[in-house]
Amino acid sequence: MIVEIEDVSYTYPSGASAVEGVSLRVARGETIALLGQSGAGKSTLMKLVIGLLHPTRGRVLVEGVATTRTTVARLATTVGYVFQNPLHQLFAPTVADELALGPRARRTSPGAIRERVEAALAAHDLDQYRLRHPLSLSEGERRRVALASVLVGEPPLLVLDEPTVGQDALAKQRLGALLAARQAERRSTIVVTHDVEFAAAWCHRFTVMAGGRVLADGARDRVLGDRQILEAAALRPPALLDLRLRLAERGIVVDGDRPEEMADRLISDCRLPIAE
């Protein structure tokens, strides 16, 4: 287990309770979508994992060590966090310096830092921007820099906060491929998101929060196919899963979740006419 959240509650100093009695375990190689409305407690829960907040009840263990018994800096070597707003984590005067910040803070040798920065510039298609100021880049490019700067540290657990906001289809595809690659390397990722379509396509475990509690936690169809859960969390099901469930209610079973697969099944199983 890379993270163990044991019956954790958190109440802000103002008295507002944000997380209540949450227990979750994250294993290596898991790709988890953390879903829920604004104010459901998702961000607070993630802040508890990266050690920015400490539980008011229960405990959070990262690689077996309670977050209260270590430092945020040390936790950051295990858990990489990419903020929704890239401006919250870009500090250096050039893109290359930005990518070197993490390894430098971890006292990596200068040669190794250079190597890692070069690899990251290449991997994230940022080479042409190496000497640019991060703030002179477009929103999408800034996001790439923020993500690359976290991935340079090769964190076993990556937390992405609303990574698809404002991203075009191809950028989402790339992000999805990154999640798949991490999973293949047995690294874990938690995606905090409203983007149910993206989550359904790339994540394999779905944790839904509402009112500070975990409402559901499980495989896609069980969680996103449950009307009651979706309603309680004000979520909409992914379109094609929704279609599949509605057809099932009418006695038409269609497997698959990609358009081509579904079309094949509909054509072979369903000889009904299309009316205009």
């Binding site: 057809l247 009418r250 369903c270 299309i274 009316a275």
Partner: peptide, 10 residues
């Protein structure tokens, strides 16, 4: 649009 009616199909 598709009138995919399960009852019909059954």
């Amino acid at each position: 649009r598709a009138r995919m009616d399960g009852a019909t199909r059954r």
